[in-house]
């Protein structure tokens, strides 16, 4: 318990996520060029930028799914640049994928059960090898909680491959939320959703933004700018603007990029 309190204190003092001078090239193309980013505890940030700006690549660098060429990543002050994805997950980092990355031949319940690994939901034990997974009461009750939070409580026994696209996006979010993370990276959570599904998703993310630290990639400008006061604009792998929604709207470079995008 003492240990827990100490970590909580530590978490409150340090910035949640720091990216320092990150760079990444694929072949000759510089996907990310000297990007720095700081997210303080209790604040969220939205990242916008045209297609191919390197937003998703930056996410992969933060989670560690792609190694950095240069630069460093800190989570709550711990240098995780060389650490495995699993360690970053343990520190409370979670993400959603732009293209749903789910366990397709398993049911919703099983998907969420797997997502609960997070922090200490189960102690490793030889005998647990022979106990059916659904007899783990602690986890199965939490599965219901998470399912309700993403409005999938009636689909628990449905195979993921039989869910609609919108439901799969909800599950995508549910899996990211299940381990009770501190920092969530949203990679276009509303891609391909119908208007009614968007309403639900917007509400959910807005509520989450008050509880968790969110870094979101979002193309819906109005929604993105209503979510938080910290906005980063990425273009061709570099940060071209950083500030409040108003500042971003006034920024000449940003206007230029989006105008060009619109006329094309």
């Amino acid at each position: 318990m003492i240990n827990n309190e100490q970590t909580t204190q530590k978490k409150n003092r340090k910035p949640a996520l720091v990216v320092k001078n990150a760079s990444k090239s694929f072949g000759g193309v510089k996907a990310i060029d000297d990007v720095s980013l700081t997210i303080d505890s209790g604040r969220s940030r939205v990242m916008i930028g045209p297609n191919g700006a390197g937003k998703s690549t930056l996410f992969n660098l933060i989670t560690g799914e792609i190694p950095l060429d240069e630069g460093r990543v800190f989570i709550y002050g711990e240098d995780v640049t060389k650490k495995a994805v699993q360690r970053r997950s343990e520190l409370g980092l979670s993400r959603t994928y732009q293209i749903s990355n789910l366990f397709h031949e398993l049911t919703v319940k099983e998907n969420m059960y797997l997502a609960l690994q997070g922090k200490g939901w189960e102690l490793p034990n030889f005998f647990s090898f022979f106990i059916p997974w659904f007899k783990n009461e602690k986890r199965t009750s939490r599965v219901k909680e998470v399912a309700e939070s993403v409005a999938l409580e009636n689909k628990l026994d449905t195979l993921v491959s039989n869910l609609s696209h919108g439901e799969q996006r909800q599950l995508e979010l549910g899996i990211a939320l299940a381990p009770d993370p501190d920092i969530i990276l949203f990679d276009e959570p509303m891609a391909g959703l119908s208007p009614s599904e968007r309403v639900f998703m917007k509400k959910l993310i807005k509520r989450l933004a008050t509880e968790k630290i969110i870094l979101a990639i979002e193309h819906d400008m109005d929604f993105a700018l209503s979510l938080t006061n910290d906005v980063t604009v990425l273009h061709q792998g570099a940060t071209i603007a950083d500030g409040t929604p108003d500042e971003i709207k006034q920024n000449e470079d940003v206007r230029k990029i989006y105008k060009i995008q619109n006329t094309e």
Binding site: F103, L106, E110, Q117
Partner: peptide, 20 residues
């Protein structure tokens, strides 16, 4: 078992399992 479920998770999406 829980172990078997994790293996099925790997079968379906290794990258997601790592991220979890």
């Amino acid at each position: 078992s829980s172990f078997g479920m994790k293996l099925k998770g790997i079968r379906e999406s290794e990258s997601r399992m790592i991220m979890l």
